[in-house]
Design a protein around this nucleic acid. Structure first.
Length: 259
DNA sequence: GGTAATGTTAGACT
DNA sequence: TAGTCTAACATTAC
């Protein structure tokens, strides 16, 4: 479930499992997700250690030594798993690292829409990809500034990685749900005061999701994620949850309290 | 067996 | 020109 909160949970997981272990084997069976050549990735990882982690939006960076990073992007499906016995290798493993201690690390990518790349400088990568500031680091002023100069639907703007990095389809819905803003409201019709509220809600939703380990069942009762289906009862106002579509993606919202 | 799914992006559209 | 939108990608789960 790889939006910002999911990737942050993966990052924390990597921090407590794979750091400072020497890599002995590197297997990359899914060619289409490689953004660096197989040999480049191998060369950087073999006999080296992952020493730190970083994240920008939905991109995870595993630092190799002090010069390079292994960038992982999950696409629509993805997970990471550290395990001790090779027999437990997860299905759809797109990268398998074997450590000196005999344990393994798998980058799982079912739909193969993810990416693996060796990245030298994170800031330069972010610039190249034209990613906006990370959703948890963006300043209030910058947020207002970015959204004020856009047109189109408010949900599209929240999901646009070039404005703000990290918010995807599910959490955009969640943020709008708590801010009481209809996903198909035009940005031009949203007051600055409402933009401020969106900013506050974005932070609280993302932080709450991370605290809940990105598991819907662990989130507060009034969260839309827990009942993300048509005709469910709204946890905030008792209204009816409806489903519509925007750019081919599903949109869930409360027909009563989101305007 | 049809349908839908958490992301990105090239190319079409406005 | 530049911002916005659509379709396509690949695979599984229900």
């Amino acid at each position: 479930m790889p939006e910002l909160p999911d990737v942050e949970v993966y990052r924390q997981y990597c921090n407590r499992t794979i750091l400072n272990k020497k890599i002995k084997t590197v297997s990359l069976p899914v060619k289409r997700i490689l953004d660096s050549s197989k040999s480049t990735i191998r060369r950087h990882l073999k006999e080296n250690k992952l020493v730190n982690t970083d994240r920008h939006g939905k991109h995870l960076f595993l630092k190799i030594g002090d010069e390079f990073n292994l960038m992982l992007h999950f696409g629509m499906t993805g997970d990471v798993e550290y395990f001790k016995n090779k027999k437990n290798k997860p299905k759809h493993t797109a990268m398998l690292l074997g450590f000196e201690n005999g344990h393994f690390f798998s980058f799982i990518n079912i739909r193969k829409l993810g990416k693996i790349k060796i990245v030298k400088n994170i800031n330069e990568f972010v610039k190249e990809k034209q990613l906006g500031p990370d959703a948890l680091s963006i300043k209030k002023k910058k947020f207002i500034e970015l959204l004020s100069e856009k047109r189109g639907f408010v949900k599209s703007a929240l999901m646009n990685q070039k404005s703000i990095a990290g918010v995807g389809n599910i959490y955009a819905d969640e943020i709008l749900f708590h801010a009481g803003v209809h996903p198909k409201k035009k940005l031009s019709q949203i007051s600055e005061r409402k933009l401020l509220e969106l900013y506050e809600r974005m932070l609280s939703v993302l932080n709450t999701a991370i605290e809940s380990k990105a598991q819907p069942e662990q989130m507060p009762k009034k969260y839309l994620l827990r009942e993300r289906k048509p005709n469910a009862e709204c946890g905030i106002c008792g209204g009816k949850i409806k489903k519509t579509e925007l750019s081919g993606r599903p949109v869930y919202y409360c027909s009563k309290h989101q305007h």
